[in-house]
Design a protein around this nucleic acid. Structure first.
Lengths: 344, 344
DNA sequence: GGATGTAATGCAATCGGTTGCATGTCAAGC
DNA sequence: GCTTGACATGCAACCGATTGCATTACATCC
C-alpha cells in the first residue's frame, strides 16, 4: 500500500501501527503484540505502559494483518434466501447477537432464492470467514459439501447427512393444524406450497399428506411461488374455485396474502373459510389474527451460531442434527367448516 | 499459522498458495500474481499456463493477504438500528444488491438502538472495510466525524454537515397527512413519537408542528419508545384518553400497534378515530389498510451504497446531501372526524 | 555492429501483525 | 559463588499476497 502515491489514504491520518507503538513505548513489536494478545506473559508495568501509548495514539490492532498471520479472521458469514421475508429478520438478529457476544463480525448474504447467486456469495465469503451459516440454502448438496469441507458450516432448514444442521421441525405443528381443522369439520383442504427446493416446504407437504391421510381428509396443492404476500393473494381465486374449505399456507406471508385475496373475493374468514399460516412471524398483526404453526425462528439463528462456534473451536465436529420443536397457535383465522360452500 | 500443530486446518486440504502455483508452473510468484491482477503485462502463453495450473489446484487468491498488501478489502459495512423493524429489510436488500454488483461483501451490524453497541461494531468493522453506511445512527456527531475521517462513510436519515448523507424527507408527506386530516375535520391530533435521538423523529415532529400550526390544529405528543408494535399498542389508551380524534405515528409498526390497541378498546377505525403511519413498509397488510407516508426506504439503501462507491473511488468527496421525496398514500385508516368523541 | 527501445519476467521489500526460540536478568538453592 | 530455573523481552521468520525496480532477451535503427 503506497499511501503517499495513490492518494487513497489521504483522508485519514494513517492508522497507527504496531511499530509506532513499539518505538514510542521503547519495546519491541513482539511485546506490543503480546500486550494485547497475551498480557499474562508480560510484566504488569510493561502492559500498562504499552497500553497507555496505544491509547494515546488511538492504536487498534489491524484485523486483516492479524488474520493473515493467525488464520483467524473473527468473521462469520450468514446467507439467507430473502432478507425481506419476515421469517429471516428475527433469525438474523439472533444470530448476529450471538456472534457479537463472541466478538465476531457477521457478513450477510442475500441469495434471493437463486443458487447461482448463493454460490457467488459463498465464493466471496469463504476466504475471509472462519465459519458459515446457510439458512434455507437452495444450493445442491454436492456444492454444500465442498464448502463444508473447507470451513465449519451449519445449515438451517436443510437436512444433509454429515453436516451440522438446525431444523425447525414443523411436522408436529402442522399435524396439530390438520387435527384442528379436522375437528372443526373440514374435509377438503388446500396446501399453498412454497419453493420445490425448500426443505421446509417438502417437510410441511409430507406432514400434511401423512396426517391428512390418517384422518381421511383430501388435500390438494396450489403453488405460491416464490412465496410472498402477492403470490398468496393470487392463490385465493384457484383455491376458492377448487371447493376446499380451508388452506394451510407454506408460510405466514403467503397466508397473509391469502387472507387479503379472500377478502377481495368477499369470502369471510373464518366463517366460510379457514386459513392456517406457518412460522408465526406476524404475531397478531394480521386481520383476522392468524392461526399458525409457531416455529421459533429466532432460536434457529441463535442455535446455529452456537453450533458454529463450537465447531470453530475444534469441538464436536461430529455431526449434529438439532431439531427445534413447533406447535400450533390458534388465533382467529380458523373456524368450523361451513355447512356448504357456495359454488362458483 | 502453524497448521500442522494446532489442528485447526485439519478439516481441509490446505488451500493452495501463490507459491505452489508458481513452483508448478515454473514462474515466479510475481508472475502468478500478475496473471490474475494484470494479465495484460504478461504474454498470453504464460497467462494461459498459469491459469491452467491454478485451476487444477483450485487456487483462489487469498483475499486477506491481498487486502493487507493493497489496502483494498472489497468489504463494506452497513449498520442499522434494528434489523427486525420492517423499515430496514428492504433497505438492506437494496444496499446489498448494489454492493454485490460492485463485487463487494457486506458486513451487517445491528445496533439495537444502542450507541455503545454501535460504536463497538464500528470499531470491529473499521479495520476491515473500505466504506461504511450508517442507517439511523444513534451515535453522537463527534464520534461519527471521527470514523468519517478514517473511511468513506455515508449516513442514512442523519443530517450532519460535511458528511455525505441520504435523507428520506418525510416533511412533504407528513404535511400532506396533516392537510388530509384537517380536511376530514380533525382539530386535535396526536403524534406518537419515536426515539428522541432519531433524526427522522425530529424531522417528523417538526413538520407536524409547523403544518398543524399553519392550519390551527392542536397537536399533542405521546411517546412510543422504542418504536414497536407493542409500544404502539400501549399508546392507544393514553391517546384515547387525551381526547384527540386522529394520530400520526412515528412509523408503520407503531401505527399497526396502535390499530390493534384501538381495536382492543373498541374504538372503530376509521369511523371514530383516524390513524396515519409513516414509511409505507406494510403495504395493504394491516387492518384496516393503513394511510401512510410513503418513504421509499429501499431507494435509500441503493442510493447510499451508490454514493459510498463513488466516494471510495476517489470521486466527489465533496459533501452530498441527497434527499428522497415522500408522499401520502391514502388507504382506509383515515376518515371524517367523528361529530363528538365519547369521553372516558 | 553497437546503441536504443520494448516486452516479459524475476527479485526483494513491504503490508501489520504473531510466535518459536534465544537471550538476558535476577533470585533461590546448595 | 556457581548452578538452575523462572520470568520478561527481543530477534527474526512467517502468513500470502502486491509492486517498484531491476534484469534479460530480442528486435530495431542508424
Amino acid at each position: 500500500m503506497k499511501r503517499d502515491s495513490d492518494g487513497r489514504e489521504q483522508r485519514s491520518e494513517i492508522a497507527p501501527t504496531i511499530s509506532q507503538v513499539a518505538k514510542i513505548s521503547g519495546v519491541s513489536r513482539a511485546t506490543v503484540s503480546r500486550a494485547f494478545t497475551r498480557p499474562e506473559m508480560l510484566s504488569e508495568e510493561t502492559v500498562r505502559r504499552v497500553k497507555a501509548v496505544a491509547d494515546k495514539l488511538g492504536y487498534v490492532p489491524n484485523q486483516v494483518a492479524r488474520a493473515l498471520s493467525t488464520g483467524r479472521h473473527g468473521n462469520v458469514a450468514l446467507i439467507v434466501s430473502d432478507v425481506a421475508n419476515p421469517f429471516f429478520p428475527p433469525l438474523i438478529r439472533a444470530a448476529q447477537l450471538h456472534a457479537d457476544r463472541a466478538g465476531l463480525c457477521v457478513f450477510l448474504g442475500n441469495s434471493d432464492e437463486d443458487p447461482a447467486r448463493e454460490e457467488l456469495l459463498l465464493g466471496r465469503f469463504i476466504g475471509q470467514v472462519e465459519g458459515l451459516v446457510l439458512a434455507s440454502s437452495r444450493l445442491d448438496e454436492a456444492q454444500i459439501r465442498i464448502y463444508a469441507a473447507r470451513r465449519p458450516l451449519v445449515l438451517i432448514n436443510r437436512d444433509i447427512e454429515g453436516i451440522t444442521r438446525v431444523l425447525i421441525d414443523t411436522a408436529p405443528g402442522v399435524a396439530a393444524a390438520i387435527t384442528h381443522l379436522a375437528e372443526l369439520g373440514h374435509r377438503h383442504i388446500a396446501y399453498v406450497s412454497g419453493p420445490t427446493t425448500s426443505w421446509s416446504n417438502q417437510q410441511r407437504r409430507n406432514a400434511i399428506r401423512k396426517e391428512a391421510a390418517k384422518r381421511g381428509l383430501k388435500v390438494i396443492a396450489i403453488p405460491a411461488r416464490p412465496p410472498s404476500y402477492d403470490t398468496g393473494r393470487l392463490a385465493a381465486a384457484p383455491i376458492v374455485a377448487s371447493g376446499v374449505t380451508a388452506a394451510i399456507a407454506f408460510d405466514d406471508l403467503v397466508a397473509q396474502g391469502l387472507l387479503a385475496g379472500l377478502a377481495a373475493l368477499d369470502v369471510d374468514v373464518p366463517k366460510s373459510f379457514s386459513v392456517v399460516g406457518c412460522d408465526d412471524v406476524l404475531g397478531e398483526t394480521t386481520y383476522p389474527p392468524l392461526t399458525t404453526v409457531s416455529a421459533r425462528c429466532a432460536d434457529a439463528g441463535d442455535v446455529a451460531v452456537g453450533l458454529l462456534l463450537s465447531q470453530m473451536n475444534g469441538g464436536a465436529s461430529g455431526e449434529i442434527r438439532h431439531k427445534l420443536n413447533s406447535h400450533l397457535v390458534v388465533r382467529a383465522s380458523t373456524g368450523p367448516a361451513p355447512a356448504k360452500r357456495k359454488g362458483r
